[in-house]
Design a protein around this nucleic acid. Structure first.
Lengths: 235, 235
DNA sequence: ACAAAAGTGTTACGCCTACACCCATGC
DNA sequence: GCATGGGTGTAGGCGTAACACTTTTGT
């Protein structure tokens, strides 16, 4: 990426940026994290930024986002959602760049990070302790975070972060971490059970010197008419 | 606009498309309408399409949408909202074109239509009787319509379509037309009044051989914390 | 026995929905 | 006086939010 170029008709370039979130830590201290790359090229070289890059010709936006994410961070097979498109002049010193912002939620431990291409490094950062970000990526990140929180109750995305078998407490802690607010345990459990999207699993889980918890698994087949309800998950 | 071009780096072009809606007709027969232009250029010449066009370099997306709308239809000073961005390859025969779709709601009688530039004509069409549309504009229109209906209760947009003084029945008919479903009169009135965003106006209005209705005006100052409520208007 | 997390029900409130009758006016 | 739309209140159901104690295990 060099300085601005001249085109037959001057026109903005199109990029995709992706904010991938995960939740890390033990049950007692979960933290919401976001995947950032350290830029190896062009402006803001050395700065941390959201993964992303230019959309190729004849490439769908979602495909471009997946490709860039894989190239720069090694992440593959991630469910992405479009958030918003930002094209304010001046947001990129190279010229006019319109970016289509995406968001995802993944289990960090199910993916291998591999910084390549334009990325010198790829790392998870606590959302509460971000480094200064390149371009307007700080603002873009806020957009994605808002979108993520709004969508949490409408999509099954949160089950992506849990192991195949999990306890209700784990699910609740996860949601609390993403939403950054406490939820009432009894209301949470009742409403999750009413959704009938979880099936109990034989066996229990121990976590130290405590009563073992029941294990459940997510049943995707049971996930029907989810979007039709006003609020599917109890958040 | 001619055939596809070659760039230093092949890259998608960026357009904006705008679906402007209005409500037309008498109180007894309101119809939701959308503003379409008849293309005078390039592919789909002669077909009807959403107004829109290429984003200039160093032009913000909203500005581009306003400019294109003014150029092709004569509409100015319209409040636009971004809906979604679509960039599926093949959606434009000229090459890869990414479009940022916008939506607006205006009072048709407060604007003068003037088809210029790429538009041979500009006309309001009933949403229930659309002509075949160019490109994938039929799908884009569905996206905007969904967005409009979702946002109707969260924004004061609907007051844009009413005269300065209006009756509650007029407001209700308007909302029913946009949502394409009937609303309960008493519930509607109660909830609108609870919002305290309307002020009664001295005087009454006659509408034929009936009891005159009270007139109200919208009080923008009273429009506070509107977005904070889950559902601001009773839809 | 005690520490620590798991598990469980009820109540109060607000919101939404459904519903029917009288009122004021023009003709 | 009648046709037409304007205007009003209440009761039931539903979902949400608040809230405390008992159970099970490991140490």
């Amino acid at each position: 990426m060099t300085q601005r170029r001249t085109y037959e008709w001057p026109r903005p370039a199109v990029t995709v940026d992706i904010a991938v979130f995960t939740v890390a830590g033990t049950l007692q201290g979960l933290r919401l994290q976001v995947l950032l790359i350290q830029r190896n090229q062009g402006p803001f070289r050395g700065h941390w930024a959201l993964p992303g890059g230019f959309v190729h010709e004849n490439e769908d936006l979602l495909d471009a986002a997946k490709r860039e994410l894989a190239e720069e961070t090694g992440l593959r097979d991630v469910y992405l959602e479009q958030v918003q498109t930002v094209g304010m002049p001046g947001r990129d010193p190279r010229g006019h760049v319109v970016t289509v912002v995406h968001v995802a939620l993944v289990a960090a431990d199910r993916h291998q990070l591999a910084a390549t291409g334009d990325a010198r490094a790829a790392r998870w950062f606590d959302v509460s302790a971000l480094p200064p970000l390149a371009f307007d990526h700080g603002q873009l990140l806020q957009l994605t975070l808002k979108h993520l929180r709004r969508r949490l109750g409408e999509t099954p995305a949160c089950f992506e972060l849990l192991p195949a078998q999990f306890t209700l407490s784990e699910l609740q802690s996860l949601c609390e971490t993403i939403l950054d607010r406490p939820l009432d345990r009894r209301n949470f459990r009742r409403k999750v059970q009413e959704l009938k999207i979880l099936a109990p699993v034989r066996g229990t889980r121990r976590e130290g010197a405590h009563r073992p918890a029941r294990l459940y698994r997510f049943v995707p087949q049971a996930f029907r008419g989810y979007a039709s309800r006003r609020q599917a998950l109890p958040f």
